[in-house]
């Protein structure tokens, strides 16, 4: 667990509090705690059991059923998964999703690290950091709508700029080859600032003496970035990377608003395909099986994250 002390009051309270000696003889005042405790956690516990544990188990169960919502689910064993293995649309969706994740997360993280490092070395202006996170505040639907307009092949301002530089107009969201890169770009636009601010907070935990020592040893800014900043940032970078990957794997609203998965399935990401199977064709069993597959992928990534983070913790020690 990493807690970034980015400066607001709570962080300071935390450090002073944990330094104080803890009093823990079960004082008589604790005797009647049990009933009250259960009352206090009751809402959260109900939410946890009814809307997290039960649906997770039910989701796994539904994956093994034929379920069309209006009639009760019927157990069909592994039939959904067999169908999945031979479903070209599913494999296409998986490929498209991975393509999206690689482009979107790759660009987000590279640009965010650069931005965080530049901010860290140049300015501590809260106004600039504020402006940079603006896109985080708006919904994916809003982002997708405004970029649909800016990327419009005929009237969009982006193509106007492309023309001004002598280029040919690009069919951003309406051609097979550009659909995913365009949506990935919108994703980067929306997530760059947020990611950069998290990394920036991580950078602020690096003591300035480290850089002074580097400068005395004659290292330039570029050298210090690669030899000091990046290695020290690695634990947070791993965390940010994996959270971004998990988020990007579940991309839906950008696709739903810009292309609806088209043209010809070129941007039919997994979440989109799951949605259309469940709510377009009411094939809930099959959609659940796909959710389970996506779930398994994300669990694997989370597991990888734990490994990465742990590896880094031992490195620091």
């Amino acid at each position: 667990m990493t807690l970034l002390n980015s400066g607001p009051a709570p962080a300071r309270d935390l450090s002073t509090g944990s330094g104080a000696p803890r009093r823990r003889p079960a004082s008589p005042s604790h005797r009647g705690d049990g009933p009250l405790a259960w009352v206090l956690i009751a809402p959260a516990l109900i939410g946890f059991l009814v809307f997290a544990v039960y649906p997770t188990l039910r989701g796994i169960y539904l994956s093994f059923t034929e379920f069309r919502v209006l009639t009760p689910p019927k157990w069909i064993g592994f039939a959904n998964f067999q169908e999945l293995a031979g479903d070209p649309v599913f494999w296409n969706s998986l490929r498209v999703t991975v393509y999206f994740v690689v482009v979107a997360v790759g660009l987000t993280v590279i640009a965010a690290v650069t931005t965080a490092a530049v901010l860290h070395r140049l300015t501590s202006s809260t106004v600039i950091r504020g402006l940079i996170i603006l896109p985080f505040l708006i919904s994916g639907v809003v982002a997708a709508t405004v970029w649909s307009w800016m990327l419009d092949p005929q009237l969009g301002i982006v193509n106007a700029v492309v023309h001004a530089f002598g280029g040919d107009g690009v069919q951003f969201l309406t051609s097979r080859e550009w659909a995913i890169p365009s949506i990935a770009f919108i994703h980067v636009w929306k997530n760059l600032g947020y990611t950069a601010i998290i990394l920036f907070a991580g950078l602020q935990t690096i003591p300035p003496q480290v850089y002074e020592a580097g400068r005395i040893d004659g290292a330039g800014e570029t050298r210090m970035f690669f030899s000091l900043t990046l290695p020290l940032l690695k634990p947070i970078l791993a965390l940010v990377l994996v959270l971004n990957v998990i988020g990007a794997f579940q991309v839906f609203d950008l696709v739903s608003v810009t292309t609806k998965g088209g043209p010809a399935n070129a941007s039919n990401v997994l979440q989109m395909y799951i949605y259309s199977k469940a709510f377009g064709q009411f094939d809930f069993g099959y959609a659940s099986a796909m959710s389970l597959a996506l779930f398994a992928i994300l669990i694997a990534i989370t597991f990888l994250q734990m490994r990465l983070l742990r590896a880094n913790e031992s490195e620091q020690a």
Partner: peptide, 21 residues
């Protein structure tokens, strides 16, 4: 610790069953 485990589990699987519920 059960609650903490929920922190690690992605919510994707709960969407459809929660709709049914």
């Amino acid at each position: 610790s059960l609650f903490l485990a929920a922190l690690m589990v992605p919510g994707i699987l709960t969407l459809l069953p929660n709709f049914v519920l």
